[in-house]
């Protein structure tokens, strides 16, 4: 990546050389070996998931009852087969597409809605702030997963509904973090300056405040995306998420549970995938937090 050399940006009017922010972040991140390892693992997993249609994989839905519950390393099935004789490697990669995209989508939904609430509450303050944040308090009053389950009870089981439930449950984390940063930014001099220039409130909010809130949003995304992948998989595991024939890692785990005595590898394979992705995300998130916000170190 060229940004790693931190090419300085000339600001046009005063000629002062300021190091590019993105470059600094990347350089700081690179120093953290665990973060780099996490990034590499994630890149491989994402690449595999993206390339699933062109990889020489056996059809993930092709059953073969004669060949069921084959162990890891058996011929033609690198990771073995499940209770219907379906190839676990193929199912893992295709299931990963589902699990990862659902997790990422849930994160984007939660981040957009939560950040917007936080921005508005922090920027306008007063009664707006109060009513929005009391609403957030109510969401936080429920144990995390329990609220998601209650929402699925209302919406009905299914992958999309599970994703919606998980994103709603994560909105408070974004709203609180973004509100906190916004409140401190609103009191800063450059926002005063923008006000003095008679910029509209919307312009100040989205052009002046939002860009400076971005690090907070990114940090919160990096800490929550792992949970969201785990929890949507968890809902599928409970039978409340992905419904057949759709399968994600959670549904694979749920199916593997039935054969835990005879063929534990059927549940070990998808579980390891979730664990690997989530721990990589956590390593990366830790590094990202230190890189974006050195004060927290």
């Amino acid at each position: 990546m060229s940004a790693s050399t931190a090419s300085p940006d000339q600001t046009p009017d005063d000629g002062v050389v300021v190091p590019r922010r993105g470059g600094t972040t990347w350089r700081r991140l690179k120093r953290n070996r665990l973060s780099v390892a996490g990034l590499i693992v994630l890149a491989i997993v994402v690449l595999l998931a993206l390339l699933a249609p062109v990889l020489p994989l056996i059809d993930p839905a092709a059953t073969n009852p004669a060949n069921r519950l084959q162990p890891i390393g058996s011929e033609g099935h690198l990771l073995g087969t499940d209770h219907l004789g379906r190839d676990l490697l193929s199912r893992l990669i295709w299931g990963g597409r589902t699990s990862l995209s659902v997790g990422v989508f849930a994160t984007l939904i939660a981040a957009s809605i939560g950040s917007l609430i936080g921005l508005i509450a922090g920027f306008f303050g007063g009664a707006t702030d109060n009513s929005l944040m009391r609403g957030i308090d109510v969401l936080m009053a429920f144990p995390y997963l329990l609220l998601a389950i209650a929402l699925v009870a209302v919406l009905g089981p299914g992958l999309v509904n599970a994703m919606i439930a998980i994103s709603i449950v994560n909105i408070p984390f974004f709203a609180r973090a973004v509100r906190g940063t916004t409140v401190s930014l609103v009191a800063s001099e450059y926002v005063d300056a923008a006000r003095a220039l008679a910029f509209s409130r919307l312009r100040i909010l989205f052009r002046e405040v939002l860009p400076n809130v971005m690090p907070t949003i990114i940090i919160t995304m990096s800490t929550t995306v792992g949970w969201m992948i785990t929890e949507t998989a968890g809902l599928s595991f409970l039978g409340l998420g992905a419904q057949p024939p759709t399968s994600d890692w959670g549904a694979m785990l749920g199916a593997g549970r039935e054969f835990i005595t005879r063929a534990p590898h059927v549940m070990i394979v998808p579980g390891s995938a979730i664990f690997l992705v989530v721990i990589s995300l956590n390593f990366l998130g830790d590094g990202l937090r230190d890189a974006l916000d050195p004060r927290l170190k």
């Binding site: 785990l253 549940m267 579980g271 979730i274 956590n282």
Partner: peptide, 22 residues
């Protein structure tokens, strides 16, 4: 600690069954 908070508890529960119970 990082391993602990990255392991899905539904999976860990099954691993425990395989290792410590079965």
């Amino acid at each position: 600690a990082l391993v602990g908070l990255s392991i899905p508890s539904f999976w860990l529960a099954m691993i425990f069954i395989v290792v410590f119970a079965l």
